[in-house]
Each structure stands twice: as C-alpha cells, then as structure tokens.
Design a protein around this nucleic acid. Structure first.
Length: 279
DNA sequence: CACGTCACCTGCGTGC
DNA sequence: TGCACGCAGGTGACGT
C-alpha cells in the first residue's frame, strides 16, 4: 500500500492547506454516498452505510499507521488503501458545468456539500473501508507510531529484544510498529546498515538507536516529498527519486559503489547493498 | 513463537 | 501482434 508517508500526504490533502481551505472536507457534511463495489465495505452493507453516514459532517481527519481516519459527527470512516488504493478529492462539476466522469476502478464515492466528492479508487480491490462508532475497534491492535516521541531508542531496543525475528518481517508487522511497508523498510535498513534477516534480539543498543533514527528520517523525508509514486499508481509525490536501494537492483550503492542486490525475505522482494549491510 | 504458503485482485513489462 | 508469465507499495488465515 501506500505506506505511512503516502497516507499522511493524503490526510493532509483532505484537511487542506491554509491558503486553500475551500478544498477541505473538514466541517463539510456528507450528503450522500455511492457504493460501486460492495466488497469495499468491510463491516457494512451498502444501504446501511449510506443511511448511516448521510448528514454526518467531518470533525477531523488523521492517520494511524496506514489507516486514514475520517472522524464524523457520530461515527468514523476508516480507510485502508492496501496495495493499489487511492483517494481523489475533486469538484463534481467542471468549469463548463458538466459532471466529471467516474474513472475505471472507482469503488466508493462520498458526496460532500459545496459540490465536492471524495472518490475511493481501488484497481486490485484489496483496499477496505470500515464504518465504526469507535476507531479503536479496528486500530486497537496496531503497534506504536514510529514518529511518536514516546517511542525513544531505549523503548525501541526493548521491543526488538522481545522477539527473535528477522528484522524486515518484524518491521513490516503492523502489530510491532505501524506504518512501514516494503519500500520504507528496505530504505531504513539500508540507512542503518543492517541486514534484513538479522535477528531482532541480536541488535546492540547503538544499532537499535540507529535503526529507529533511520526509520524516522526516511519517513520524514518521504512525507516532505509528499510520498512516493511507484508503478502506474501516481500520487503526485516524488520520493521514488530519492530511494537508495528499493527498485535499484544492479545499480551502484550511493555509499560504496557495490551493486545493489535483490533477494526474497518473508516472501517479499528485498533490496540491499551486500557490502554495507552484512550479516 | 517464528515462519512458510496461500488467497484476495488487476495491470504492466518482458520475452517468446 | 498476441500471449503466457512473473511481478507489484498489503494483510490475514492457516499449517508446520
């Protein structure tokens, strides 16, 4: 999926920037909903969903891990984009007054006051939308936020010591820490000069601290670049141009010039510098 | 507990 | 040009 930086970028878009608050969903009322593919709704029937969200207005928008949370007057809509999901916030009518056409793979539409709609596009149908009265019903099992200041080096080291797992699958486990996916995990391990299959309980305090630093810096840079646009899923960000190892098999390591290698770890494509990241 | 496998889906690039 | 194949930012349910 879009990982933490991509979801954060989408959340900020929905909130709107100060000089363009007209294009924000905050305080806007949902006037109607249209479910184009029933499977999109994880815990609702289309009719129930529509009836329940109608006339609720948006109180806040935030991100938790890779979930986008749209808090409404009474309930909350949670969206997980998984591999290929995306959200478009757009005006329903163009300048000529004709309705903007739906796009291929549009799965759900929320119609807001003032002629704006939020469209959930999801080619692979992996993404899901929940409607809940309490977000913790879904978010309760997530690990800590990597950018939360409460997660310091000592705490993180303790977390790593509690498992004897390979670093990469552990970091991608949303119960362990929330928000990392394949791209940012590879980049964080590269920055920390750690091998993806190194056992989590074998890290020194220094290595743990360095890994947490690497995770935070790569995520912050991803957010600053408005996320990455990979494959045919273009979201406007440009962090794909700043990747050191992900998708760069055979290219030279920016630090030592050794060719980047691709391997499989935990069934996932993994990219390392074999010189900088030794086991 | 840690790990492997599979399932869920569509689209794109590659090689024949 | 067509077609088969492998691959893809994620996650959860199983089985070992």
């Amino acid at each position: 999926m879009p990982e933490l930086p991509e979801v954060e970028t989408i959340a900020r878009t929905l909130i709107g920037v100060p000089d363009n608050v007209s294009f924000s969903i905050i305080d806007r009322e949902i006037q109607d909903a249209l479910v184009l593919w029933e499977g999109t709704l994880a815990n609702q029937l289309p009719g129930d969903f529509t009836v329940r969200v109608k006339h609720q207005s948006v109180q806040s928008v935030w991100r938790r891990g890779k979930f986008l949370v749209i808090a409404l007057s009474k309930d909350a809509i949670l969206i997980h984009l998984r591999m290929s999901g995306d959200l478009r916030l757009e005006r329903i009518l163009d300048e000529a007054g004709t309705e903007m056409p739906m796009q291929k793979h549009d799965r759900l539409v929320l119609f807001f006051a003032s002629g704006i709609r939020l469209v959930f596009n999801n080619p692979r149908k992996f993404g899901r939308v929940w409607l809940v009265s309490n977000p913790d019903e879904i978010l309760g099992d997530l690990g800590p936020e990597p950018l939360d200041k409460a997660l310091d080096a000592e705490c993180f080291h303790g977390m790593l010591q509690q498992h004897k797992r390979q670093l990469k699958p552990l970091l991608m486990d949303q119960h362990f820490i929330a928000g990392l996916g394949n791209i940012y995990t590879d980049e964080a391990l590269y920055r920390a000069k750690l091998h993806p299959i190194k056992r989590s309980n074998t890290l020194t305090k220094e290595e743990s601290a360095c890994l947490l630093d690497s995770i935070c810096s790569v995520l912050k840079e991803g957010i600053r670049s408005n996320g990455a646009s990979i494959d045919w899923v273009y979201r406007g960000g440009d962090f794909q141009n700043h990747l050191n190892v992900y998708g760069r098999t055979g290219e030279p390591c920016p630090v030592c010039g050794t060719q980047i290698e691709r391997m499989i770890v935990g069934q996932r494509s993994t990219h390392i510098c074999p010189h900088c990241q030794q086991l």
